[in-house]
Simulated scan of single mutants.
Amino acid sequence: MALHPLFRSPRRLVALAAAHPSALLLAAQLLSLLVYPAMDATRDGRVVFGAMALVVVPLTVWVVRNSRSTNWVAWALAVPAIVLSLVSIALDRPGLVAVSSALESALYFYAAIALIRYMLDDHRVSVDELFAAAATFTLLAWGFAYAFLVCQALYPDSFTGMVEPERPRRWIELLFLSFSTLSGTGNGDIMPIGAQARAVVMLEQFAGVGYIAAVVGRVIGLTLNRTRTDRSR
């Protein structure tokens, strides 16, 4: 079976990655989303998933760098977040999870703001900016999911669900709640019941509406204007 010409040339792959860092970040986020359900139930699986942060988090920092934001802030959040996450899983120290989650939440929000600034920097929509629009959505979803995790650690009765309502919600459940809230689709099986949790959920609802209206709407508008301009020539 012959390989696609792109995969026969490492230089082309490197050039593609350099040209579209947002696409790499988006792919890594979606891949981790697909593989995590198979790892959630076991300790070894959580260790492997924690190790994936060694790829996803540096990619997040790389995207920040390419969007002309302050790189050292991203690394200051990323390095301790990775270390604490791996230590908390490997040594079974739940107390460290809240700290690492807070750092990762801050990193993802910081990267999302960096990408939004990158997309608003000019009046031209590039291919990478289209990938950045999708990557920003995943960054916001992950950032709020980690914020939910911190909220649950500080206030244990923050969330409930249809299945085993008394137990703390797992990461994949909180991520599902985050995606549902940010996209505006809503769900009924994972619900915030604590005042603090509801406040964070309302902030995400506001962020979701604002992101779609301000950023996605702008990208669509500029793309349509460019199409009309090209047709008129």
Rank of each mutant, 00 (worst) to 15 (best):
L115D: 09
L115Y: 10
R117W: 01
Y118N: 08
Y118K: 04
M119H: 03
M119I: 04
L120I: 05
L120R: 15
L120Q: 11
D121R: 07
D121T: 00
D122V: 01
D122A: 03
H123G: 05
H123P: 01
H123I: 04
H123K: 06
R124V: 15
R124A: 14
V125R: 10
V125A: 09
S126M: 09
S126P: 02
V127P: 06
V127T: 13
D128P: 00
D128T: 05
E129P: 04
E129L: 10
E129D: 07
L130Y: 03
L130G: 05
L130R: 12
F131D: 06
F131T: 02
F131I: 03
F131Y: 10
A132P: 07
A132N: 06
A133N: 11
A134K: 03
A134T: 03
A135E: 03
A135Y: 07
T136M: 12
T136D: 08
T136A: 11
T136N: 11
F137R: 09
F137C: 02
T138I: 03
T138C: 02
L139C: 08
L139K: 06
L140C: 13
L140D: 06
L140E: 08
L140Y: 14
A141P: 01
A141D: 07
W142L: 05
W142G: 00
F144L: 03
F144N: 02
Y146L: 03
Y146F: 13
Y146G: 07
Y146C: 01
Y146S: 04
A147Q: 00
L149C: 01
V150T: 15
V150I: 15
C151I: 12
Q152C: 07
Q152T: 06
L154G: 05
Y155I: 14
Y155M: 10
D157T: 09
S158F: 12
F159S: 00
F159K: 07
F159C: 01
T160M: 08
T160S: 13
G161E: 08
G161L: 04
G161H: 11
V163S: 07
V163H: 08
E164Y: 09
E164W: 03
E164I: 05
P165A: 01
E166S: 05
R167D: 04
R167E: 09
R167F: 05
R167T: 06
P168D: 01
R169F: 04
R169K: 07
R169Q: 04
R170K: 11
R170N: 05
W171P: 08
W171H: 13
W171I: 08
W171C: 08
I172L: 14
E173N: 02
E173M: 07
E173F: 09
E173W: 10
L175T: 01
F176A: 11
L177C: 00
L177A: 09
S178T: 11
S178A: 15
S178F: 14
T181S: 13
L182E: 04
L182G: 00
T185G: 01
G186K: 02
G186N: 00
N187P: 11
N187L: 15
N187R: 15
G188E: 09
G188P: 02
G188V: 08
D189W: 15
D189L: 12
I190E: 06
M191P: 01
P192T: 09
P192Y: 14
I193F: 02
I193C: 10
G194N: 12
G194R: 12
A195I: 15
A195P: 08
Q196R: 14
A197C: 14
A197F: 15
A199E: 12
A199Y: 15
